[in-house]
Each structure stands twice: as C-alpha cells, then as structure tokens.
Amino acid sequence: MRKIIDEVSKEITQVLQRVDERQAVQLSEQIRSSKRIFISGEGRSGLMGKAIAMRLMHGGFEVYVTGETITPSISEGDLLIAISGSGSTGSIVQFSKKAKEAGAKVFLVTTNPDAELTKITDGVLIIPAATKKRRAEEPKTIQPLGNQFDQSVHLLLDAVIIHALDDSYEKMTERHANME
C-alpha cells in the first residue's frame, strides 16, 4: 500500500509542476473580475467542480453549478469554468456555447490543448495529466481512468482560488455550513 500511495503522490506532484503558471494566474484573475461564476463538469470532473464551487462560495464569490435546480441563467459579466479532461464532453461543449451566446466568458480546464472547445473559450488551463482516453502524449499512471486528471483539477483549482482570495480565514469560516 505505501508504494501505491507514494506513486500517486509523485504522479500528482509531477503533473502540477508542469502546469503553465500564467494560465493559472489568468483563471484566478478571471474569477476575481467576474460578476458570477458557473462551474460545469461531468462525472468525477463534475464532483471536483462542486468542491471548487463550495470553496469559491466560502471565499465570498457568487457561484453556481450547472444542472442544479437553483442555477440561474448565465449572462454578460459572468464566467463559466468548464472542466473536461478531453475538452470535448458533449454537455460541456453545449454549455460553453450557450454561455458565449449569452455574453459570458468561458475558461476551459482540460488536458487537451487541441480540443475544439479551445477555439471558443476566453482562456484555457492545461493540466498535463492522464485521462481515461490515454492519448499518446498523456503521462503514464498507475491510476485507473481519469483519476490523475481529477485529483490534479482539485488541487490546482484550490491553489487558483487561494490566489484569488481577499477574505480572511475568519470570514470564510462565517460562510461555512452551520447546519451540520
């Protein structure tokens, strides 16, 4: 077991070290300057997106997750953070196109710099991790399916949010759920 834990940790560290810091800073600045933030992802990427939405809410940002019953319409001044390892997930492409039509900005978090979706987005954060597709340029991994991408998304977007925060620990704690 120790060998597996150490290898997973090593893999994630290697992925995060290869991230283009300028792309991460650009996303952080988009978060800061947006009126509202919408997060979209499918499967485990969607679960990582919900975790990121929660942290953004703790940070005082107005944030929504696509597909939820309370999610309002997106509009000009808003930001959609689209999470898709392949950059071609059907629903994510559709949400991104709708967001652009509404005048919102779209920022794609993906492994694929050549994804068609990159042509319509306002920014791209490339996470050089393995996905379930196992394209030739993806790193080797002992992990199944898209684990390496999803774990990297969570850690990297947490770092992006930390960079975007203005609030203190105390203010964030005040926003934390209190009906637990």
Results as ranks from 00 to 15, higher is better:
96 S>L: 14
129 A>T: 10
96 S>Y: 05
121 T>E: 07
111 T>A: 13
160 V>F: 05
133 K>V: 12
131 T>W: 11
115 A>I: 05
118 T>W: 06
109 V>W: 07
129 A>S: 10
159 A>Q: 06
143 Q>K: 04
150 D>P: 00
111 T>M: 14
162 I>Q: 03
134 R>H: 01
159 A>W: 01
145 L>A: 11
158 D>S: 02
99 A>I: 07
157 L>W: 02
159 A>P: 08
127 I>N: 06
132 K>Q: 00
148 Q>A: 10
110 T>I: 14
129 A>P: 04
102 A>V: 05
122 D>Y: 06
153 V>E: 02
105 K>H: 05
162 I>E: 00
122 D>E: 11
145 L>S: 14
104 A>P: 05
107 F>L: 14
153 V>G: 02
154 H>Y: 12
128 P>N: 14
120 I>F: 06
100 K>C: 08
132 K>C: 00
143 Q>A: 06
126 I>P: 09
162 I>C: 00
121 T>F: 02
148 Q>R: 08
118 T>A: 12
162 I>F: 11
156 L>N: 04
136 A>C: 00
127 I>S: 09
151 Q>R: 07
120 I>H: 04
98 K>S: 13
127 I>M: 08
142 I>Y: 11
96 S>V: 10
120 I>G: 04
122 D>K: 01
124 V>S: 04
116 E>M: 15
146 G>C: 14
138 E>P: 12
96 S>R: 02
151 Q>N: 10
109 V>Q: 05
139 P>K: 05
159 A>E: 07
102 A>P: 07
112 N>A: 12
158 D>E: 12
97 K>F: 01
122 D>Q: 05
131 T>K: 11
139 P>T: 09
143 Q>I: 04
118 T>P: 11
110 T>W: 01
99 A>H: 02
111 T>L: 10
143 Q>S: 11
160 V>I: 15
161 I>V: 08
113 P>F: 09
111 T>G: 09
124 V>A: 04
144 P>D: 09
149 F>W: 06
119 K>Q: 13
126 I>M: 10
107 F>N: 13
124 V>K: 03
119 K>L: 10
117 L>S: 04
143 Q>Y: 06
108 L>S: 11
144 P>G: 12
112 N>F: 12
120 I>E: 13
128 P>G: 09
155 L>G: 01
121 T>L: 07
121 T>H: 04
147 N>L: 09
139 P>C: 12
100 K>T: 14
120 I>W: 01
160 V>S: 00
111 T>R: 12
101 E>G: 04
154 H>E: 00
117 L>V: 03
115 A>S: 15
139 P>E: 04
148 Q>M: 15
139 P>N: 08
151 Q>A: 03
108 L>P: 09
153 V>T: 01
121 T>K: 06
116 E>A: 15
147 N>Y: 02
149 F>A: 13
138 E>V: 05
156 L>R: 01
122 D>T: 03
125 L>D: 03
112 N>G: 14
114 D>Y: 14
149 F>C: 07
116 E>I: 13
122 D>V: 02
